[in-house]
């Protein structure tokens, strides 16, 4: 890791190639693991691994700042939330939740088709000599695409691109940035409201009284008996996830 951290920003070197292939393999393998592992927690861990390798790839893309943000937000927050929910609900196995054969064939065929299209589109113009990033890359021939590289775009003392990104965010993209802040606020409020779980705590007078009107509306949504069953199970399960696994 040490070595990696020091060599990664150097564009065009063999180190980059090695690092790329290592992380690419990890990323693809973990991605396939995510969609194929039956155990949800294993899938989530694989997804964390995938995110970390994406973070590594960001390093080779001269975007160290993004790399750290990737680890911090995806690895540190989003996936923890995922695992938290999985464990809260105690649903780490989904043996019964598989698609039927026809759907599987169709899905894989469609995915393969799209993947083929991607390969078809990028192999060639983007995989030529000229597409090796860096200021000293050869001029692109016809049908080839050049890669400028970020090294000269960054400030002298800004190897990670934090300044580079920050300047853009606070100048060109001010309004999107503010909108993103608003979006986060709204999402927070929405999550708080959704997480009230008033229907499960009828004995709690405070909440029942506060939300009597809203609860009336929601009662109509309860179209089948599943909710009642879930509530029962939740109360009885006490420690989530304790009774589900078979070893």
């Amino acid at each position: 890791m040490t070595l990696l951290a020091q060599v990664a920003p150097t564009a065009g070197g063999t180190a980059e190639v090695v690092v790329f292939w290592v992380f690419a393999v990890i990323a693809l393998g973990s991605a396939i693991a995510v969609i194929s592992l039956r155990n949800v927690v294993h899938g989530a861990v694989m997804l964390v691994l995938n995110f970390l390798s994406i973070g590594g790839l960001f390093l080779t893309l001269e975007s160290a700042f993004l790399s750290v943000i990737q680890v911090l937000v995806y690895g540190g927050a989003i996936m923890v939330l995922f695992l938290f929910v999985i464990m809260l609900l105690g649903v780490d196995r989904d043996d019964l939740l598989q698609a039927d054969l026809r759907t599987r064939v169709l899905a894989i065929a469609g995915g393969a088709l799209l993947a083929g299209a991607v390969l078809f589109a990028f192999v060639g113009p983007y995989t030529s000599e000229a597409s090796v990033c860096g200021p000293d890359a050869p001029a692109p021939g016809p049908g080839e695409v050049a890669c400028a590289g970020l090294a000269e775009a960054y400030d002298e003392d800004d190897g990670a691109g934090a300044r580079f990104l920050g300047r853009s965010l606070f100048t060109t993209y001010t309004y999107p940035f503010e909108l993103a802040a608003l979006l986060l606020t709204v999402a927070t409020i929405g999550a708080v409201i959704l997480a009230r779980r008033r229907d499960l705590e009828p004995e709690d007078e405070d909440l029942a009284d506060l939300d009597a009107a809203a609860a009336d509306d929601l009662d109509g949504d309860d179209l089948d008996g599943a909710s009642g069953a879930a509530a029962e199970r939740h109360v009885a399960g006490d420690g989530p996830g304790t009774t589900e696994r078979g070893g």
């Binding site: 690419a24 396939i32 598989q98 698609a99 899905a107 995915g111 983007y126 090796v132 890669c147």
Partner: peptide, 29 residues
């Protein structure tokens, strides 16, 4: 490193994710 390999890798990952969405019925997955 040719930039196109990043695109290809990302495209493959996208397709894998897409296939996952189609294959799995578990909402969290």
């Amino acid at each position: 490193m040719e930039i196109g390999y990043y695109f290809i890798l990302s495209g493959l990952m996208f397709c894998i994710g897409l296939v996952g969405v189609l294959l799995r019925r578990n909402a969290i997955v």
